[in-house]
Nucleic acid binder design. Structure first.
Lengths: 68, 68
DNA sequence: TAGTAATTGGGTAATTAGGGAT
DNA sequence: TGTGTCCTAATTACCCAATTAC
C-alpha cells in the first residue's frame, strides 16, 4: 500500500445530491443520521466516498424483476 | 464538475405524476406493482429513471392498430 | 489577496409514504 | 381493477447569513 492509500474518490455534497436527485442539505442530514459515512475537510465541509454512494444507488429496491 | 461514468437522471414522484397527468399516489402504486422501477433515497422516498418514464410516455399505442 | 461558487448552520413550508375507506 | 382523496408521521425542499473551497 502506498502512502496515498487506495485512491478513494471523494464526492462533494452537491455531487451526491445530484445523483440521488435530492437537495445537498438532505445529504447532510443523511450524514448526521449516520446513514452515510462522511469525511470532513479541515474547514468542516463534508466529503463522501464514491464507492459507498454508488453502492447505495445500486441498491434500487425494485418490486419488478428487470429480467436483464 | 462532471462526475465520470454513467449517471441516471432521476425524476421525483411529482414530476412523473405531472407528465402522466395522474396523482402522485398513482405513480407510487405503479412502482409497488412493479410496472415502474424505482430508486429509493436514504429516507425512503422514491425516484424514477427519466429514461424509463420517457420511454413509457413515448410508447403511445392506440386502440386502433396503426398498422405498423 | 481577491472573487465566485459551494457548504455550513438553523428555521419553516412543501412532498412523500403508508394505510384505509370510497 | 384502477384512480383520487383523507389522514398522520416522516422526509425533503427552500429561506437566510456566515464560513469554507478553489
Amino acid at each position: 500500500m502506498s502512502l496515498h492509500g487506495e485512491s478513494e474518490v471523494l464526492l462533494t455534497p452537491a455531487e451526491v445530491a445530484s445523483l440521488f436527485r435530492v437537495d445537498p442539505k438532505t445529504v447532510t442530514r443523511w450524514a448526521k443520521a449516520g446513514k452515510l459515512s462522511s469525511i470532513r475537510t479541515l474547514g468542516g465541509h463534508r466529503r463522501y466516498k464514491e464507492s459507498e454512494v454508488r453502492a447505495l444507488l445500486g441498491a434500487a429496491s425494485e418490486d419488478a424483476t428487470p429480467d436483464k
